[in-house]
């Protein structure tokens, strides 16, 4: 901890109470609370930890409890009902549809987010004229509140006035409109497109961080040795930034997986619940339908998969620290 240069005298950092007792009584350093690292460490950390425990830890346990209860919006009294909520959830085909959609949306979005993010990261670190403008335009989808950016898509995919349809009509590819959000497959594709669009900048920024952390001399040495762009990319850049790529993939997956805003604004789960995901279905049941118990049971299904993703992120971070 203490660096070789400018290390303070040992007296400022007693290892514990024992060291304190051994110290000669009158010292230059007054022993105040503001100097006791051990106590300060807890004191500094406590507010954040208490706050998080109270407003994340407790609600999480509460959510688990709700899923075994008959709490509703109108009747907040808590009665134990065992597995009844889960039984009703499993009996509902919409739940299975939502579960499948969640997995499909997440998997497909993740692939595209990583592919486009990788390309975009290389653009973001490059130096060129108009770089500021390109960076600004590219960041727009990520920094805009999701609900508002999804509204721009809602208008772009309008059933009558979609500009995409207009172009396709002019080119002669289609006669009638596409009704992007009215057909199950196209509506699903639209939801995935919006997720990819809004999360690619985030993935690119994370990968950009990885690219910048590659030591310059490694790249330069490879360049001197005559390695071309693709060879450097495949043999140096990608292996060295693999953990960062993994992290951006997992972030992309988690944010797609847990998001309900895109579905809520774009399709409201429609047509006829065909694009419903777990998060949105939990919201529709739990808040709009008022069935808190069932909503909680649905939302709980997010947890095991999130835990797996979190552990995977941790592994990737560990590997990055080693390299």
């Amino acid at each position: 901890m203490t660096g070789p240069g400018g290390a303070p005298p040992a007296a400022t950092r007693p290892a514990g109470p024992a060291a304190e007792r051994e110290r000669p009584a009158p010292t230059r350093y007054r022993r105040r609370l503001t100097d006791r690292d051990g106590a300060l460490a807890w004191l500094f950390l406590a507010p954040a930890v208490v706050y998080i425990l109270a407003l994340v830890g407790v609600p999480f346990l509460l959510a688990v409890a709700f899923s075994f209860s008959d709490v509703t919006g109108g009747d907040p009294s808590f009665d134990w009902t065992g597995l009844q909520n889960f039984g009703r959830v499993f009996a509902d085909p919409v739940f299975w549809r939502a579960l499948r959609n969640t997995l499909v949306f997440t998997a497909l979005s993740m692939v595209f987010i990583v592919l486009f993010g990788k390309v975009l990261a290389n653009v973001l670190i490059a130096d060129f004229r108009g770089r500021w403008l390109v960076r600004f335009l590219v960041l727009l989808p990520w920094t805009t509140p999701v609900a508002l950016s999804t509204i721009t898509w809602l208008w772009m995919l309008d059933s009558v006035f979609s500009p995409i349809d207009w172009v396709l009509r002019q080119v002669g590819l289609i006669q009638a409109n596409m009704f992007y959000l009215g057909r199950p497959t196209l509506a699903m594709a639209s939801v995935i497109a919006v997720h990819v669009w809004r999360l690619v900048p985030l993935a690119a920024v994370i990968m950009m961080a990885g690219l910048l952390s590659i030591p310059k001399d490694v790249q330069e040495q490879a360049l001197v040795d005559g390695a071309g762009y693709w060879r450097r990319m495949v043999e140096i850049t990608i292996p060295l930034t693999a953990p960062v790529i993994a992290i951006s993939a997992l972030f992309g997956a988690i944010f797609t997986f847990t998001d309900m805003t895109v579905v809520y604004v774009l399709t409201r789960g429609g047509p006829t619940n065909e694009t419903q995901v777990l998060a949105s279905w939990a919201f529709f049941r739990g808040i709009e339908g008022g069935d808190v118990g069932q909503g909680a049971a649905i939302a709980l299904f997010l947890f095991p998969l999130l835990l797996a993703a979190a552990i995977a992120i941790l592994r990737a971070v560990r590997r990055m620290e080693v390299s």
Binding site: L45, V56, L62, T258, M260, V292, L300, L306, A310
Partner: peptide
């Protein structure tokens, strides 16, 4: 414990609002 605590706090960031909004709205 600093290292482990840091990781624990980071994981809290990954707990999504979709998991908590029902109990938080009761709170």
């Amino acid at each position: 414990w600093a290292g482990r605590m840091g990781i624990a706090i980071f994981f809290v960031y990954l707990v999504p609002p979709t998991l908590l909004f029902l109990s938080l709205s009761r709170l």
